[in-house]
């Protein structure tokens, strides 16, 4: 009788443990997938902002101080500074369709440094509030340079 009860309890315990473990794994992988999607959305927004500022810097679109400042402020909000690794936690090296290279984790110091420089350069551009095309180009160049610098080592080839 007692033996059977213990057995049932054990079974129940095992079931709960198994359920808990499964839930944990599922939540973790869901969180991993979510965070990959989240960081990709951040990068996509950067692309959207670049499509506003890039053509102005290239002289394809006319310079307008308000448009430029609004885009720079949006860029500032989007920038992650030294908290970028929050979006690249361990366990998200692969999965989703991430294009992050192993170097993000192997040399995270360099990775964070680029994002920090990028963010500081944006803040400087917002503070400068460029009044004409030349001022804008001078502030925008150092921001844009970080895109390639980061993709050089930290994004895989398609």
């Amino acid at each position: 009788m007692i033996g059977a009860e213990i057995e049932t309890r054990m079974e129940t315990f095992m079931r709960i443990a198994l359920l808990a473990a499964t839930t944990l794994v599922l939540t973790m992988s869901a969180a991993g997938a979510d965070i990959i999607e989240e960081r990709q959305a951040i990068m996509k927004e950067r692309g959207d902002i670049m499509r506003v500022l890039g053509p102005i810097a290239q002289g394809q679109q006319p310079f307008d101080a308000d448009t430029v400042l609004a885009a720079l402020e949006r860029m500032n909000e989007n920038a992650l500074g030294d908290s970028i690794m929050d979006y690249f936690p361990e366990g998200t090296e692969t999965g989703g369709d991430t294009r992050a290279t192993p170097a993000v984790w192997e040399d995270s110091e360099a990775f964070v440094e680029i994002e920090t420089t990028y963010s500081a350069n944006i803040q400087a551009a917002v503070d400068a509030a460029p009044g004409d095309l030349d001022e804008f180009r001078a502030a925008f160049g150092p921001i844009a340079a970080q895109c390639g610098a980061c993709h050089e080592r930290f994004r895989t080839q398609q």
Partner: peptide, 20 residues
């Protein structure tokens, strides 16, 4: 010159140094 494609994605990998 800038590494930006017409869609304003930016060149990465080995091409980044080529652009520089």
């Amino acid at each position: 010159e800038s590494g930006f494609t017409p869609d304003f994605d930016s060149a990465g990998g080995r091409m980044a140094a080529v652009i520089r």
